[in-house]
């Protein structure tokens, strides 16, 4: 995959004079659910679009080859085929955006996807660089990236150095990210800002800008392990940073909220946020991913309800 953001030289003016008003941002964030809404067939269409944007994720200490294998099967067949057929979709054409695993499980995931020839359709994303805390030596953090890429990962979800961010050392952060980007090679770099640990919305904005200047293909809200993860409030700050960077450079960078996105309704609101604050291209999986695990199940239940007119029992959607 070609990177869509080559990055630019470090420019301090991007992190100076940042003014953000939390109250006003909260208010706008709350409006995405009320100002626009989709129902019935429109809702189903939006939900299926959301499915294609899901980075289906398992990031647990007890991950093994078998549950990673199941994850890959689900990513390739996210919605029951009979339901999709009834609404005119070819089940083979609807897959999740990626699977997302720990570096040591990349080989399992890549192997599984290869076994049913989906390895070129569904990318394997690996978290890396000392996920989730990032409190490791730069040398090993960079090494992790290279090993994951070697195992078949084509997207690397790196975590940024929060210490540098909190100390306002944006140049250091930039330099580290530059090296990470280099280590990624052809793989896409998705920079996890861990917004819940950045202390202020201004820092969220500044970290977004620095990550983009350093060439990130996506900026991602959180690891899912912080106290505060993907909320519409911090998302709005990041999305507006995407827009500012695009105005300034002409490069579009993708956005990936992760952590706490569970309901089908949420998925529509997130898509609406991208469409309203940015544009339609920014709602495709080239520029938008949802880091989630439970979300897919809820979307499938909604599709079931649309097709059959009844709510599904738990055992009908394995």
């Amino acid at each position: 995959m070609e990177s869509h953001n080559p990055g630019i030289e470090f420019d301090e003016s991007y992190v100076n004079n940042v003014n953000l008003n939390l109250t006003a941002i909260k208010k706008r964030a709350a409006e995405f659910a009320t100002r626009r809404t989709v129902k019935k067939d429109y809702q189903v269409a939006w939900l299926l679009r959301a499915v294609t944007c899901i980075d289906l994720t398992t990031l647990a200490g007890d991950d093994t080859p078998s549950n990673v294998q199941k994850l890959c099967f689900k990513a390739a067949n996210p919605i029951r085929a009979d339901l999709l057929k009834q609404i005119g979709f070819n089940p083979k054409e609807l897959t999740c955006g990626a699977v997302c695993v720990y570096p040591s499980r990349v080989a399992d995931a890549y192997g599984t996807l290869s076994s049913f020839k989906m390895n070129d359709k569904i990318p394997v994303a690996a978290v890396a660089t000392g996920f989730p805390s990032g409190q490791y030596h730069l040398e090993t953090r960079l090494k992790e990236i290279k090993l994951a890429v070697a195992d078949g990962a084509s997207e690397i979800d790196i975590v940024i150095n929060r210490t540098a961010a909190l100390q306002g050392d944006w140049k250091l952060l930039f330099d580290e990210l530059k090296q990470m980007k280099e280590s990624c090679g052809k793989a896409h770099m998705k920079a996890i800002l861990a917004v819940g640990e950045l202390g202020s919305l201004e820092n969220v904005y500044k970290a977004s800008m620095v990550a983009m200047m350093a060439g990130s293909d996506f900026i991602k809200t959180s690891t899912g392990k912080e106290g505060v993860n993907a909320t519409l409030v911090n998302a709005l700050v990041m999305v507006r940073a995407l827009r500012d960077y695009y105005y300034a450079t002409g490069y579009k960078v993708g956005f990936k909220p992760a952590g706490g996105i569970r309901t089908a309704k949420d998925a529509c609101v997130w898509l609406s946020l991208m469409k309203e604050e940015l544009d339609e291209e920014w709602t495709t999986n080239k520029f938008f991913r949802l880091g989630a695990s439970a979300l897919l199940g809820d979307i499938e239940r909604q599709v079931y309800h649309y097709v059959t007119g009844r709510y599904a029992a738990a055992n009908e959607l394995p």
Binding site: L22, T23, K26, V195, G199, S200, L201, V228, T231, N234
Partner: peptide, 8 residues
């Protein structure tokens, strides 16, 4: 209105 704290 006031507010700056949204997380840690």
């Amino acid at each position: 209105p006031m507010g700056i704290i949204f997380a840690n």
